[in-house]
Amino acid sequence: MSSRDKILSAVAANQPRLSLLPDLDILKGGDINVVEKFTEVLTAIGGKVINIARLDEVTAYIEMNTAAGQRVVNLLSEPLGMRAALTDIKDLPHTLNNIELAVLHADMGIAENGAIWLNENRLGQRVTPFICQHLVVILDKSNIVPTMHHAYEKIGDEKYGFATFIAGPSKTADIEQSLVLGAHGSRSMTVFLRDI
């Protein structure tokens, strides 16, 4: 018998009587101000939240926070000035190691934990939001949901090969529980909230 069959038959023989799945709707909780909560939580976990009226403000931010010659990758559908022109990054993921700053559009934010949802079709390459030194995310306020239950409801049976929740900069507290931002992934995460 193959290991597969051995395992499956042992499991079938030993599993208890079927028990029912719970109703998740009761877990969603009451109404909250999602923008306020999202901002509060993401800030508390080391992210930055900036409210903007126009994308120009992001352009200005990028020009303030990068130097000429540094690689900026813009994966939105419109350019953000000279330094963040639209870029194609379809080659080897390893070549992205020199990205100083990447700008992405997120389809959803989650108020309770400050996370954003990124489907790989927003990333150019899967590694982009991890390998860049600094991550900039554009998020529409109308796309912020209260909890993870609402998030998965919205995701539904969305198709993706890879997708991820990112909540703040990469971090570690492995050395004596001292929090250090910038472990292996991005050193910062800045979310620009649009009034849409």
């Binding site: 976990i45 993921p93 400050g114 993870m148 991820t164 909540a167 900069p169 507290a173």
Partner: peptide, 16 residues
């Protein structure tokens, strides 16, 4: 760890 969520929660469906 008392965080609201881990920084990364990555969903792998298909190989790159």
């Amino acid at each position: 760890t008392g965080q609201p969520i881990t920084t990364y929660s990555s969903h792998f469906v298909k190989p790159r």
